[in-house]
Nucleic acid binder design. Structure first.
Length: 258
DNA sequence: ATGGCTTGCACCGCAAGA
């Protein structure tokens, strides 16, 4: 089973890329973020025609997350949950579902803007709520994968220019402490289980030729729980769609599971 | 040099992303 995460930066604009990538990547489960559309605009029929069932929660203009599941795999609609229970939030950032007995969580972590701002405070509150909820979710579903746009670069090697970024949004000590909190629950950053290229990133700024210069950050992650990690066979970032015409600024990240 | 692209929304400029 191959699982993936991809911030598509508007599913309306990127539907063609998503369909192409579904066809050529061989993925079975895809977590999407930044749909930027309301549920009535979700392209359920187009994805079904491509062989994928969808669960999603969207809103106008911003945010929105989905899980696409190859229709040969069982997905029980009764297991779908949206948002973080107990954390009141109009922003649609989390959806979870159980696929073939494995809990799949698609999350779009807040950007945070900059340390000291209201948006950064919201990010830290959201991270604290996620930590509490995912702890309970782990108890209930030992085989769990947390996939998404974390908007956190865990280490300096995940940043193209760590000196220039020191202390800034995406790399601040508070954000990295929250990431470490997830690791302390037993989660594994699957990307680092394997040998990887130097300067491997999942997001590149549209501006200043970010992709061409490989001036990026690794902020999209797939974390697996202790019971699931032994099933992880590989993890890689697929840079190919980032080079397509009118791309998302994020690349998909994939994990192959036994 | 706080810009630089891209998106959505609503108008012809703005907020937001990371």
């Amino acid at each position: 089973m191959k699982i993936a995460t991809w911030n598509v930066n508007s599913l309306k604009v990127r539907l063609g890329h998503v369909l192409d990538w579904l066809a050529q990547s061989g993925v079975d489960v895809v977590c999407l973020q930044e749909l930027k559309l309301t549920d009535d605009k979700f392209p359920t029929a187009e994805l079904a025609a491509a062989g994928f069932a969808s669960v999603f929660t969207g809103q106008k203009t911003y945010n929105g997350v989905a899980i696409l599941v190859r229709d040969t795999l069982p997905i029980d609609n009764a297991t779908v949950s949206k948002n973080i229970p107990g954390f009141e939030d109009p922003q649609q950032r989390v959806i979870a579902a159980t696929v073939a007995g494995r809990r799949i969580v698609s999350a779009y972590f807040p950007n945070g803007q900059a340390p000291g701002t209201e948006k950064f405070a919201y990010k830290l509150q959201w991270l604290a709520a996620l930590q509490v909820w995912i702890t309970a979710e782990l108890e209930r579903y030992p085989e769990l994968a947390l996939l998404g746009d974390f908007n956190i670069a865990p280490e300096d090697r995940d940043v193209h220019d760590p000196k220039a970024w020191e202390g800034q949004n995406l790399v601040s000590p508070e954000e990295r402490a929250a990431f470490a909190g997830l690791i302390a629950l037993g989660f594994t950053d699957t990307f680092r289980l394997f040998e990887q290229p130097e300067r491997a990133f999942s997001w590149w700024d549209y501006r200043m030729l970010g992709f061409r210069r490989n001036a990026g950050m690794r902020i999209d992650h797939i974390l697996t729980s202790p019971a699931l990690t032994p099933a992880v066979l590989s993890c890689h970032i697929d840079k190919v769609p980032r080079g397509w015409e009118q791309p998302s600024d994020h690349a998909p990240v994939t994990v192959e599971l036994k």
